[in-house]
Amino acid sequence: MSVPILSAREVNKTFGAVVAARDINVDVAEGEVVGVIGANGAGKTTFVNMVTGYLKPSAGRIQFEGADITALPPRAIIRRGIGRSFQIPQVWGSMTVAENVEVTLGIAAPGPLPFWRKLDRPEMRARADAVLARFGIAEHAEVEARLLSQGVRKLLDVALATVRQPRLLLLDEPTSGISADEKFGVMETLMNALKDQQVTVLFVEHDMQIVERYATRVLAFYDGTIIADGAPSKVLADADVRRHVIGETHRPGKH
């Protein structure tokens, strides 16, 4: 196997007496679409947060494309080629959707940008529109982001995260807070938009149908660590996973 795009070794995170993550070991290869499942509090988001520098591991090492990123601040990790979206979308509420992308292009686009030039000009708007079209939210271009529905806001959040053209993208619950009948639509749009970006994706998800449909590999978290890792059909059929993860997350009324 060539150098994994993401590699975690013996990663632990404790908050006082609380163990949020213990002995996480995983290698992700380029091109994989990894679904991360687990009950609330199982350590999924803690893991994503550690990979992206929001939390520092208490112990262990995280590597991206073979280079250590364990102690780096978020912006340094992002500059190396990792992007992420959030469970609660992090967009700029007082700006329109198009402005969100324009400003993102302004401060995050790869390569030098004429920073002294007016941002609000036709070619920037055209680039922003192209991004929005890819994520299927072009019709909302003039809407202030704070007024968006959750689904559109989630898509915008991911769209902003991809402007820097990351090689690894972490999506924290891309379909949470979206009604059941819209979930597949959002996920479908997302995966299509990412298809031609050649990006390795790791997404946290509670909906097993979505995991089954989109993931090429599944990591099951329980009690802060990975209890199963492999092909979706195998992991979702695993007895431990069925008892600890699916049993707890598939109760009606909870997702």
């Binding site: 992206t52 601040p73 978020p74 912006r75 992002i78 500059r79 992007g83 992420r84 959030f86 992090q90 967009v91 700029w92 509420g93 007082s94 700006m95 400003v103 993102t104 401060i107 995050a108 902003l160 995260a161 402007v163 820097r164």
Partner: peptide
Amino acid sequence: TAIRDNEIRVEYLGA
């Protein structure tokens, strides 16, 4: 304005 609205997104764009 981006900083006023949401610093997290700014940092997570690498700035």
